[in-house]
């Protein structure tokens, strides 16, 4: 797994709004929201502004994309058998949905095993042609971890509730999670198929102590970009004898001088 870009995000809480609007220039009055449920054994209903938005939301799954009006929303998480959105929720938070932004709201355990709601900004912008982005997130009751690809660490010392983004060649990678500094998986290995132009969000959730760690994964498309060029001439570095250059060979001495000038101007291009 070749690492082309590396974006560690530490202070998620503080930086969420700014990052959420940074990558998207188009002003919109809605934002895109994904919801991840990473608290084991606890099906929930999710209420947004007092209305039930998700019913019987199963642990270890995600929902989305949901389009929500931009601005603040009151999010409350109740046990799935709750009659309505009144009373004392399991978790609640004020969620700011940035206009045109893309965010994840994750219900998960802290490193110490306490339930928590964490907002995370989804980086879903363009990736280079042929590449895919993977965002790995530590949302589990567990100490620092390394993320392994093909058995080799590609993200080191990731702690709850942080994330790290990688851009990698599109394809299938064998991914695993191990305690920081080790290569013995506590999750996986599992094959992740990373399609070109997509971003795959991988959430490690659950509890190491309870032996119920797992990955919750979703993929967002639309990050395609074109190659930088099409080098479609003369792979050996020289053209065929007398092919389009023939016209040039027939030029007068004055013409040849002009050719020299033209070639000098072309030089900075530097590659075919």
């Amino acid at each position: 797994m070749r690492r082309l870009a590396r974006a560690a995000t530490g202070a998620l809480f503080a930086s969420a709004i700014a990052l959420g609007t940074a990558g998207i220039a188009v002003a919109q009055d809605t934002g895109t929201v994904y919801v991840v449920h990473g608290i084991p054994d606890t099906p929930v209903d999710v209420y947004v502004d007092g209305e039930r938005a998700l019913d019987d939301f199963a642990p270890g799954t995600s929902q989305g994309p949901l389009d929500l009006p931009s601005g603040p929303h009151q999010v409350a998480v109740f046990p799935a058998d709750a009659a309505d959105g009144s009373g004392q929720p399991l978790l609640s938070a004020q969620a700011e949905v940035p206009a045109g932004g893309n965010v994840t709201l994750a219900a998960h355990l802290t490193a110490e095993g306490q339930p928590s709601l964490t907002p995370l900004v989804n980086e879903v912008g363009e990736v280079p042609a042929g590449q895919a982005r993977v965002v790995v997130r530590h949302l589990a009751a567990a100490p620092a971890v390394d993320v392994l690809a093909g058995g080799e660490p590609v993200v080191r010392n990731l702690t709850n509730p942080n994330q790290e983004a990688l851009e990698v060649p599109a394809g299938t990678v064998s991914a695993a999670v191990a305690a920081a500094g080790t290569t013995d998986p506590v999750i996986g290995p599992a094959d992740l198929t990373l399609e070109e132009g997509t971003t795959t969000f991988v959430h490690a959730v659950g509890s190491l102590q309870q032996d119920n760690l797992e990955l919750v994964t979703f993929t967002v498309g639309g990050g395609d970009s074109a190659p930088h060029g099409v080098p479609a001439g003369a792979p050996s570095g020289a053209p065929s004898e007398g092919v389009p250059a023939a016209g040039w060979a027939a030029l007068s001495a004055a013409g040849v001088a002009l050719v020299g000038l033209s070639l000098a101007r072309l030089r900075p291009a530097g590659r075919r």
Partner: peptide
């Protein structure tokens, strides 16, 4: 953006006594 104010009610201890299933990898 989210002023997280968790108001949980006894959730962390509500765990089953039986061992949970082996980690499931949902790729």
């Amino acid at each position: 953006m989210l002023a997280t104010s968790p108001v949980w009610a006894g959730l962390p201890d509500a765990r089953p006594a039986t061992p949970p299933p082996a980690p499931v990898v949902a790729a």
